[in-house]
């Protein structure tokens, strides 16, 4: 098991955002967490990445606890979060943005090779390497953000709403890349509002509502479940 979350509770000040959620991700799997706005999806991901400090509960990655580790140490262990809303570094160039993703690595030759690999996944970025990140379109920024989080060569890639606010063509492109990564053996934890697309690509899924996991199962099961259908798949 690559990731095991047990009874995780997270607070923002006095407000409890997560009420003890448990889930796990197996190596090589693609797992999705679906839920509506404010259900606690992003909170869960930020906590796993070490950007929020958990209250009770346990997060185990490859058998050891990462609960108290700072974010940079968690990246070094092999977890990479691509945060919601792109958040690329707009005054750095596209190339520099990608290099920032490898900020903890020292193997220069391999970093250069990985830039090529990322560019092969997102060919649109190829002609824009020297452009400031802020001048890219929304879709290109999302590709850059995903590319950047791949540059640490993560064992576990966490994507927070990668298709948010993108045109359908671009959504397809993003999901094609996720499919490629999945086929290459990368473990992916995916949070999406677009539950239909998420369940198409994922092996398993969890449904989260107001800070609690309310349902779990294989994607086929969740897709055919009436409750999921009416709440997240639009009937």
């Amino acid at each position: 098991m690559i990731l095991q979350v047990t009874d995780l509770e997270v607070f923002y000040g006095n407000i409890q955002a997560l009420h003890g959620i448990s889930f796990n991700v197996e190596e090589g799997e693609t797992v999705t967490i679906i839920g509506s706005n404010g259900a606690g999806k992003s909170t869960t991901l930020l906590t796993i990445a070490g950007l929020l400090k958990p209250g009770k509960g346990e997060i185990k990655y490859l058998g050891t606890s990462t609960k108290t580790l700072p974010a940079d140490r968690i990246v070094r262990r092999g977890i990479s979060l691509c945060p919601e809303g792109r958040r690329i570094f707009s005054s750095l160039t596209v190339y520099e943005n990608l290099i920032m993703g490898a900020v903890q690595r020292r193997d220069r030759k391999k970093i250069r090779a990985d830039v090529k690999w990322v560019l092969s996944l997102f060919p649109d970025l190829n002609s824009r390497l020297d452009q400031a990140g802020g001048t890219l379109s929304g879709g290109q920024q999302q590709m850059l953000a995903i590319g950047r989080s791949l540059m640490s060569r993560p064992k576990l890639l966490i994507l927070d709403e990668p298709s948010l606010g993108l045109a359908p063509v671009l959504v397809n492109q993003i999901f094609n890349v996720i499919a490629t990564l999945k086929n290459d053996g990368t473990t992916v934890l995916l949070v999406e509002q677009n539950a239909r697309r998420a369940l198409e690509i994922a092996d398993r899924g969890y449904v989260i509502e107001t800070g609690r996991i309310t349902m779990e199962g294989s994607s086929t099961f969740l897709k055919s479940n009436d409750q999921v259908k009416s709440a997240y798949l639009g009937g």
């Binding site: 930020l46 990445a49 070490g50 950007l51 700072p70 974010a71 940079d72 990246v75 070094r76 990479s80 979060l81 691509c82 945060p83 958040r87 690329i88 570094f89 707009s90 005054s91 750095l92 520099e96 290099i99 920032m100 993703g101 900020v103 903890q104 953000a145 950047r148 989080s149 540059m151 640490s152």
Partner: peptide, 23 residues
């Protein structure tokens, strides 16, 4: 230097900078 780029990254998006592993 890489340190300078890290500074700019933290300035622009603290959270994103930390998520790529910048302390």
């Amino acid at each position: 230097s890489p340190h300078g780029r890290s500074m700019i990254a933290v300035r622009e998006h603290d959270l994103a900078a930390q998520s790529v592993g910048i302390n």
